[in-house]
């Protein structure tokens, strides 16, 4: 039981479709759904001008087509499920507090900003500022999980306070900048300046990385909590091998210019990188 929206006119200009959430579409007929107002560029328009609406409204919303220019999908949703058969635009699931979003293609910048709960799964790549704080505010996501199977851009999890961000591929620079707490797991390579300004929180990577001088090597150990987190991510579909679950990690603590109670864990995988 789900409502299906199939894109038949590709918007040339960004289409702000914050109405596409299970709660907003619940109980609406296909005609009413088509009448919902969206903003195309600077003009307001109707959802029906871009999507063919079929099926009956239920807790699930299925979107088909190249939605890379459709922004604010699932904004503020609290329950239900959205599946995007294709790629999604910016501000996906902004401020969501529950429910889950699955994107089979790629996602744009700003995935899940100001999120406090729920789950976002992106099978492809995603852009910059994943789970990050909007401009000017020092507090990022308050909870929830964001899992991107592919690569992501810069400043993911900036100002993060709580929650989990997991990246299957590589991630750009300034991952976890000004992070307050929470967990970021990057199976691929970390970029530059990871954890700059972090106060608490954990950033995990399965590869060696060059960290800021304000991070100091603490020890090499086998973190117990990863034996819970990594299998959970494996169930969500990320490819995680046992060496990572059981492996020992170098613990670097920082950022010394802030509270110095954050940590970056780098899989030592038997190769002891001599800390200088």
């Amino acid at each position: 039981m789900s409502v299906d929206l199939t894109l038949y006119t590709t918007p040339m200009v960004p289409l702000e479709a914050d109405v596409i959430t299970p709660a907003r579409l619940a109980g609406l007929s296909t005609l009413e759904t088509a009448k919902l107002t969206v903003v195309h560029g600077n003009q307001s328009a109707e959802l029906g001008e871009f999507f063919r609406v079929t099926g009956a409204a239920g807790a699930e919303v299925h979107l088909t087509g190249d939605l890379s220019r459709v922004k604010y999908i699932g904004m503020g949703m609290a329950s239900g499920r959205i599946v995007v058969h294709g790629s999604a635009g910016m501000h996906l699931g902004a401020g969501m507090s529950g429910g889950d979003i699955l994107v089979e293609g790629d996602a744009g910048d700003w995935v899940g900003p100001e999120m406090s709960g729920g789950l976002i799964l992106v099978k492809g790549n995603a852009g910059h500022m994943i789970g990050s704080a909007y401009r000017g505010s020092l507090v990022g996501i308050l909870g929830g999980e964001i899992v991107v199977f592919g690569n992501v851009g810069n400043e993911i999890g900036s100002g993060m306070r709580r929650g989990l961000i997991a990246i299957g591929g590589d991630c750009g620079d300034f991952a976890g900048v000004n992070m307050l707490a929470g967990t970021i797991v990057v199976l691929g390579r970390l970029g530059w300046r990871t954890g700059a300004g972090m106060r608490r929180g954990t950033i995990v990577s399965m590869h060696p990385a060059e960290l800021l001088p304000t991070f100091t090597y603490a020890c090499t150990y086998r973190p117990v909590f990863l034996r819970l987190y990594l299998p959970h991510l494996r169930r969500l579909g990320l490819s995680i091998d046992d060496a990572q679950v059981q492996g020992s990690y170098q613990r670097w603590c920082g950022d010394a210019i802030e509270l110095n109670r954050g940590e970056v864990l780098l899989l030592a995988s038997g190769v002891t990188v001599a800390p200088s």
């Binding site: 001088p213 304000t214 991070f215 100091t216 090597y217 010394a256 210019i257 110095n260 200088s276």
Partner: peptide, 11 residues
Amino acid sequence: RAHLQGRELGG
């Protein structure tokens, strides 16, 4: 900034 807070630095 780390110097100002009396924290020693690696590297």
